[in-house]
């Protein structure tokens, strides 16, 4: 087999990674954009989504599709509820101070990790794909489920775009992002917008976790990689810029997939971090970011 098919395979892998990464990073970016805080436990919400998908699939063992559908419904709700409790119990109390929030969410990260380790265990557990078919290309067959992941992610991304740009909630969110005090003066319920955005961000991560779990097994430490990649994406794209987040997710996702196929996933993450260093030299605020400091 010569280079062409390899490149194509790497490109496919990268595209699937990119879609899932876009979902995860969008949640992080949304929370930062509107609330000006960074949620370090974001990767753990992703991990919880994956673990809950395993729980759902083992509840309904007869049908992988039913288990998956249940997970797609249950995981975002459970994780959203945890996020709501976090917002009410922790974030509101530290008045959304950026540094306190980061310390608090690091605390939350270890608590969630330990909870999953204690109750779910240290094993990586596989979840069967809800639908199994192969797409055959002239050179190799490709798991059809991975393409389903890309399509579903694209649908969620589109829905998010619609929600942000065409609905009242989206208007509130954009108003809060531009000027929180002014928005409040115009009657935007800022506190409720904060809670909603935090919950939605967590739900996006959980959904990404559910989608990825048939490809990648559920494990209590799996949240770190998506967190790191999401950080890379939001810094390159510009903190708070949704367009930047999606564009950067594709750049990083596809290059990550390519380098992972040809060399190693570890090298891909190191190179992506070096790319961040390069971007910081040229534009400290990221490619699409406005000055947020």
């Amino acid at each position: 087999m010569d280079l062409g098919p390899f490149l194509f395979l790497a490109f496919l892998e990268g595209t699937v990674t990119a879609f899932v990464l876009a979902l995860t990073a969008l949640g992080l970016s949304l929370v930062f954009g509107v609330m000006r805080i960074v949620n370090v436990a974001h990767g753990e919400f992703f991990m919880l989504g994956a673990v809950l998908a395993w729980v759902c699939s083992s509840l309904i063992e007869s049908s992988a599709l039913a288990g998956f559908a249940l997970a797609l419904f249950v995981a975002p709700i459970v994780v959203g509820a945890i996020a709501l409790a976090t917002d009410w119990g922790i974030l509101k109390r530290v008045k959304y101070n950026p540094e306190s929030t980061i310390v608090a969410t690091i605390g939350l990260l270890y608590i969630i990790q330990q909870l999953v380790l204690s109750f779910y265990g240290p094993e990586a557990r596989p979840v069967a794909a809800p639908i199994y078919f192969r797409v055959s290309f002239p050179w190799f067959g490709y798991s059809g489920y991975k393409l389903v992941v890309a399509v579903l992610s694209a649908a969620v991304l589109l829905a998010s775009w619609y929600g942000i740009s065409r609905t009242r909630l989206g208007l509130y969110m954009r108003a809060t992002q531009q000027d929180m005090e002014m928005a409040q003066a115009f009657g935007v319920p800022v506190r409720r917008v904060y809670a909603t955005v935090f919950v939605l961000g967590a739900m996006l991560a959980a959904m990404a976790g559910v989608l990825i779990v048939p490809v990648q097994q559920a494990h209590y430490l799996m949240g770190l990689d998506p967190l790191l990649l999401s950080f890379i994406v939001v810094i390159i794209g510009g903190l708070g810029s949704l367009k930047g987040t999606v564009v950067a997710a594709f750049v990083i996702g596809i290059s990550d997939g390519m380098i992972s196929v040809f060399f190693s996933p570890t090298l891909a993450k190191i190179l992506a971090t070096l790319l961040v260093a390069a971007v910081l030299v040229i534009r400290p605020t990221g490619l699409f970011g406005e000055d947020t400091a």
């Binding site: 000006r36 370090v40 790191l228 993450k269 190191i270 971090t273 400290p284 947020t292 400091a293």
Partner: peptide
Amino acid sequence: ALRTSGVSFLIVTMMFGQACYLTILY
């Protein structure tokens, strides 16, 4: 890293710390 400030600085430190760890493993 000092080209960034505030929250970006935090994210960048975490990212480079992790990259360092991955480099040692690599």
